[in-house]
Design a protein around this nucleic acid. Sequence first.
RNA 1: CGCGGGGUAGAGCAGCCUGGUAGCUCGUUUGGCUCAUAACCAAAAGGUCGUUGGUUCAAAUCCAACCCCCGCAACCA
Length: 471
Amino acid sequence: MEKIYITTAIPYVNGVPHVGHALDYLLADTCSRYQKMLGNDVRFQAGTDEHGNKIFQKAKELNVPVQEYVDENAKKFQDFIHLLGAEYTDFVRTTDKDHEKRVQEIWKKLSDHIYLAKYEGWYCTGCERYITDKEYEENHGVCPDHQKPYEKLAEENYYFRLADFKDKIREAISSHEILILPEFREKEILKLLDDSPDVSISRPKSQLTWGVPVPDDENQVMYVWMDALSNYITVLGYPDKDISDFWPAYAQFVGKDILRFHTILWPAMLMALGLPLPKTIVSHGMILVNGQKMSKSIGNVVDPLEVLDKHGTEAFRYYFLRHIDTFADSDFTWDKFEDAYNNELANDLGNLVQRLATMCKKNGFSLSDAPEIEISKEYQDLMNEFRFKDAFDFAWDKVQNINKKIDDKKPWVLAKENKEKELSEVLKELVTDITEVNKLLSPFLPETSDKIAKIFVNEIMPPETPLFPKK
RNA sequence: CGCGGGGUAGAGCAGCCUGGUAGCUCGUUUGGCUCAUAACCAAAAGGUCGUUGGUUCAAAUCCAACCCCCGCAACCA
């Protein structure tokens, strides 16, 4: 039995749960359930990123205490994860006192690689942020959102000296000590690594109050990444506890937009702490709508809660794990979702369960013990390579094969001709087949898999209502 | 010449690394079956594999150039 640690990205809680978050949770959950199926001991982290100005301001706008605001939002995300049928073991919030204390200790341990420097740049008082030189030129020195000219400002920030680790990181990535998936992202990151400057990791308190104070400097507050990335180890108890049981992580799931932080700054932090690097960073794509990025301004945002409400957890998991590519950007449309539901979940699988169970019942066939199942090598290889969509396809192919086999063996003919022995052999074979497929489906569709398992053991009874009624 | 991904049937994709009859799902048409959720099974139609050139007995696949789409370019799920 191995100890497996799986992590998800912690969403920034200034908004509601998004389909993109769902994808992250589902991939991690599928991985986790598969590992548990193999008999491994799994810890599955989830959490929320709760510091920063945006959250502070949003709470002020709503006129609620900031802590109350983040409490509410953290709850929304926890509920969301449950709705997805994902089972985490640990939930970390960056406002947890333990986390805050541990991040400060981590900061101290990193101090050899941290220095204070002056940052100077163009600043918009409306946006309350610095903008890049390029942006300055494009907007001709005036903020388009606030119609105010940018101001030249200077402030002191702490920086993390990434330069100390670049060579080692390049080596770790190239040698696959830390494996980046999909493969093509590795090139992208290696190139990016070369151009990466030291990272600004604090803000003056005058600018940012809602965050973890920098130890031994009351004028500075930690800024997002140091705080957020640490969650993966603070939740395990680092540095108060020995985390070597579960660290290094078996897999860390992230969106492609934040892959760079997880493959550049994060390994650098770990190296500085003397901790081993995560084995795999899995970067998934974005979910598009008709080929376009979802955005509030275009107004094409798909609310995952609406999808869950209309079609339920299992249909949601089915679409997002099989029709959304594990690694690349893919489309969500209601048409595609509904086609997949009706043609595949209802017709292929739901109907198969119905017809086979009915057949068994009509002919008085039952199995006292669940048949022994071996998990196919091909499926395991795909799962071990995090190719969940392909593994799901592999399982689905078997679903279709059972439908073919039924047509081929024609049990109803055997029944009419009273070939009881032959009929019972055929049914036994079919029930064994469906039990096997069901096992392969269980990391993806846990609830359905449970139901099917119950139907085909002891006295076989078709479900009273179809598993997936057509819509 | 910033970096990366992609262009294969009406749609969505696989195949490319390791050249050898172009494949899968959906959709369309036709046939079969009756155990099942008007489901299931089979067959057919449908492609100059972005363009041009090169290597080769042989190129979707390897090489070169070009065209087009899409991401990223440091607070974005």
